[in-house]
Design a protein around this nucleic acid. Sequence first.
DNA 1: TTAGCATACTGGTCTGACCAAGATCAGACC
DNA 2: GGTCTGATCTTGGTCAGACCAGTATGCTAA
Lengths: 246, 246
Amino acid sequence: MELKRTAEGEKGFEKVFAFLRERLLAGSLKPGDRLISERELASLLGVSRPIVREALRALTVLGIVEIRDRIGTVVTRPDVSVLNDFFTFALAQQADMLDDVMQARVAIECQAIRLACERANIADFERLQRALAKIGETIDEADAGGMADFDFHRAIVVASHSETLTVLHSSMAGLLTHSHRSRRELVQAFPSMKTYLIDDHRRIFEAVIARDPERADATLRKHFAIGDEYRRRAVVGDIDKSSASG
Amino acid sequence: MELKRTAEGEKGFEKVFAFLRERLLAGSLKPGDRLISERELASLLGVSRPIVREALRALTVLGIVEIRDRIGTVVTRPDVSVLNDFFTFALAQQADMLDDVMQARVAIECQAIRLACERANIADFERLQRALAKIGETIDEADAGGMADFDFHRAIVVASHSETLTVLHSSMAGLLTHSHRSRRELVQAFPSMKTYLIDDHRRIFEAVIARDPERADATLRKHFAIGDEYRRRAVVGDIDKSSASG
DNA sequence: TTAGCATACTGGTCTGACCAAGATCAGACC
DNA sequence: GGTCTGATCTTGGTCAGACCAGTATGCTAA
């Protein structure tokens, strides 16, 4: 379809990019390999060095390679930061996407917790337990509390032993950190939130321990729903906007 | 923490990239806007044009801007292709990631179907129904059948009216298309798969129509599980590997 | 054998230049 | 006066060659 890559008809950048893409996808360039120097690449493909740099830079932002100053360019294992950047930019231009990203996060986490029920090992359990304890300890602190909350949820995803889920989750995590924090600041406003936070997370933890995917998923979903409800109430209570038009 | 962007201490590329990132994230550069020319940007930031091009190219592969030959560089709405590229590269270097990506896909789709139950409109229902009909019609064709299957699942995600979920789903879709196809080729091998494919999808459809998130999610999950089972049986039957160490 | 230095090599960047084609505006023509 | 045409300006696309600053290497001298 859109192949014929590395043929002659391409512009400079495309040529270099396609050349590298080919080797990368074919596997002849594996993580850890060092590419030939920019100069060699340039003369090899009949383009100038700036063009080669464009291509290398492109692969860099995709997290495929890493340009090391005065050392060379090496192939790396795909990195999270790409998705992070993407979501960051995407969100900046469409702020309404935040709820949307939250939905994706819920999706990832609920799937992760199901897998975690099957795959979690002792170390995962311990990590979860530590995170759970931390939540209890930092219940009155906005910053530390938010982080503890985040750590717990991340521990769930890590326990799924799925790299893709982990990558996706952490790429969205940064963006949702703010909402995490602001939610945490509601603890003072809603005293009932303390028990919600502690009990919910404990129930989630117990479901994972019990290795009961259905219960874990359902409990986690409920947890998110209640969190949303708190946030909604806070908005209405504070600003009292959107009171019209039901 | 890691700010101080656009300060003086940065290297050329970082300076330009940070400069643009700032405006992009702050919103002073919105989709549709045209950037100043490369030359202006270069002199403005005190770097050379090749460096500016690196930065612009970086933003291009991130799907943030589009460089139009002899026109200029314009800000675009974030595009799916980034994630597509990323997953493609990532998968190429870790083939074992395929099951992992499948998990992510299940995650997205199950969340999407829940949202679809709430948000789907008549048009969505019709699209689903058409896709469902197509599945029945093409049940004996590998290619068309696979596409019909794929369309149905995509219709679910579209019906969620969540752009993020849609983006994530479609970015993984291409990669899983092969497995879709190969699964479809099993139809001949397992006659019972016909009813499985048709009935399952109909049940899923009905659950969405009924706007029953729990049932929809559960049905969809079961659908995936059975599909996995078929695939597993096919592998065992065909190749009979992994028969030991059950 | 080993310590030390010269050198080749690497990425990082700049300068200035050329090309092709879209954008613009002045002048010519209707 | 209005419209069309073409010269010119501007834009991206690219190249060639050069310089810098460290790294890596290897050769030489101790």
